[in-house]
Design a protein around this nucleic acid. Structure first.
Length: 341
DNA sequence: AAACGGTTCAACCGCAACGCA
DNA sequence: CTGCGTTGCGGTTGAACCGTT
């Protein structure tokens, strides 16, 4: 006749835990250890379901839990682990001491899930090479804690509504390197699938961008960083942004300068050129990307490959890097499947 | 000052896996 | 082998929060 509920629901307290309840639970577990969750509330004198007690202990009261925001390093780890494990939050949490699966799941869902929407949007618009984003919603209400910390900084550069971002044919150029490596007939299939992969990589760059809480208009920014040979991971990028700053120039344009010194050409800074009414703008992609094939230098190509390699690293993260053209089709399919999932 | 509404996160729910009798 | 109890996990919910209007 079905399974009996884990506990009698009638008469049990639900909702937020009070500090008194926390204290009772903590003291009981410290005295008697974890386990026997079903009998725990009765023994401890709590009007809670055993399941609820377990959850409260694991996610909140445990002494070995880290408090505070997810650090940039942890964020990097989460992103990487998620590419390997997917939504296996407990598995991911096991790699992050002091973090719970619930915490990581929440972090992922609140910070990253909506990025997947942006990603899919980009993926479906690459044919026109122009990304028409909906008018960015004003960030109402409570902002993320990380964003709140940055609030002062962000107020400097309010990018307003109805941004239309003209994107040069980055995908074509990104793919070019691979195409020149391949012979026509023999590798045609590989090139095709590579092309699809690059679609997704463009989308992922949006995801990476949003991880850094940057305006959605900066969709290729992180990709570009690598092509410039500057920041190499998310945390470094974040620090880089803080160090170099972003500010409006006298004309009200937002100028973003990423480690110009480390880029070969000062023009490689990103310029957001606001329109006259300040409600739309266009990214000067060409000034950023040295994607002119004739001028392309080995170093730039190497950085692009590095980005791709990051995406294609083996699960142990230390496996031999593979050039894009060498990614086997199965791995490409896996990546694409995951990106689109 | 109040209302609104997006975001966060603690807590809940259902299911599956596992262990044991 | 089967059935039951327990535990763990991932998805979902909704109250609280708080910046904006």
């Amino acid at each position: 006749m079905g399974r009996a509920p884990c506990c009698e629901k009638v008469g049990l307290k639900r909702g937020r835990w009070t500090s008194e309840e926390d204290e009772i639970l903590s003291k009981y577990i410290q005295a008697n250890g974890e386990g026997s969750w079903r009998s725990l509330p009765k023994n401890a004198g709590l009007l809670r379901c055993g399941k609820s007690c377990r959850l409260r202990w694991i996610n909140y009261l445990r002494t070995d839990l880290k408090r505070g925001n997810i650090s940039a390093e942890e964020e990097d780890t989460i992103v990487k682990l998620h590419t390997t494990y997917g939504n296996r939050w407990s598995m991911i949490a096991s790699h992050l001491p002091g973090r719970t699966d619930n915490e990581i799941k929440n972090y992922w869902n609140s910070h990253l899930s909506r990025k997947m929407y942006c990603f899919s949007k980009i993926s479906t618009t690459t044919e026109t090479k122009t990304i028409d984003l909906p008018p960015p919603k004003r960030k109402c209400g409570r902002t993320s804690r990380w964003a709140m910390k940055k609030n002062k900084f962000y107020k400097k550069q309010t990018i307003t509504n109805s941004s239309t971002i003209s994107q040069p044919d980055i995908k074509e150029k990104l793919v070019h390197d691979v195409e020149v490596k391949t012979t026509h007939e023999q590798e045609k299939e590989k090139t095709t699938s590579t092309y699809e992969l690059c679609d997704d990589i463009l989308g992922l760059s949006e995801l990476l961008d949003d991880i850094n809480e940057v305006s959605g208009a900066l969709c290729m920014e992180n990709c570009l960083l690598d092509t410039c040979g500057s920041a190499t991971n998310l945390s470094e990028e974040r620090e880089t942004m803080e160090e170099n700053g972003r500010a409006m120039n006298d004309d009200g344009d937002v100028c973003i300068n990423y480690k110009q010194a480390s880029c070969e050409e000062p023009e490689s800074s990103v310029n957001y050129q606001g329109s006259n009414n300040g409600e739309s703008g266009e990214w000067n992609w060409e000034s950023v990307m040295k994607f002119n094939i004739e001028e392309e230098e080995d170093s730039c190509r190497e950085h692009k490959e590095n980005l791709l390699n990051w995406l294609c690293e083996d699960d142990d993260w230390e496996g031999d890097s593979k050039m894009l053209g060498e990614i086997d089709s199965q791995k490409q399919n896996d990546l694409i499947a995951w990106f689109l999932s």
